[in-house]
Simulated assay, not measured.
Amino acid sequence: MLQEIKRGHVRDCAAALTCSNKRISNIISPLRAALDDAMHDELITHNPLAGWHYRKIEPPKEVDDIDPFTAEEQAAILAALPNDGAPLIQL
């Protein structure tokens, strides 16, 4: 029942998920909005998820997937740009 939903229920469901914090947030956000609407429609007295955000502790990624350009590649890219485009790309 709608009146029986507690923060602990949502926390337990979120803890059981094997996805990222971003995905969990995307799942909980519509539920929080629906509970907010239910509160404004006087179906429940308060929103148990108001002001609450779940965040599971994730270990750091083992592989760094950032692959920036080397200094030589950066210089080549800037040299290939027209003069008025270089500042924008350089920024």
Rank of each mutant, 00 (worst) to 15 (best):
G8A: 06
R23F: 05
A15E: 08
C13Y: 15
R7Q: 15
R55N: 08
A16R: 13
H53S: 13
P48A: 12
L91W: 11
K6T: 15
L35N: 02
D12C: 01
D41S: 05
D37E: 14
G85P: 00
F69R: 05
L2C: 04
S25D: 08
E42T: 10
P30T: 02
R11V: 15
P87Q: 02
L43H: 08
I89S: 00
K6I: 14
N21G: 08
I27Q: 04
L88T: 07
N47D: 11
L17A: 06
G51T: 07
L88R: 06
I66N: 05
H9P: 00
E42M: 14
E42L: 15
R55L: 07
I5G: 02
A79P: 00
D12R: 05
I44H: 02
N83V: 12
N26E: 13
D65Q: 07
S20L: 02
K22S: 09
C19R: 10
C19S: 12
A16N: 07
L2F: 05
A14F: 03
S29L: 11
G8I: 13
V10E: 01
H9K: 06
Q90Y: 05
W52Y: 12
D64Y: 11
A80F: 10
I57K: 12
P82K: 15
P82M: 14
A79E: 12
E58T: 14
A15H: 01
D41L: 10
C13P: 00
A33Y: 08
D64S: 12
P82N: 13
K56N: 06
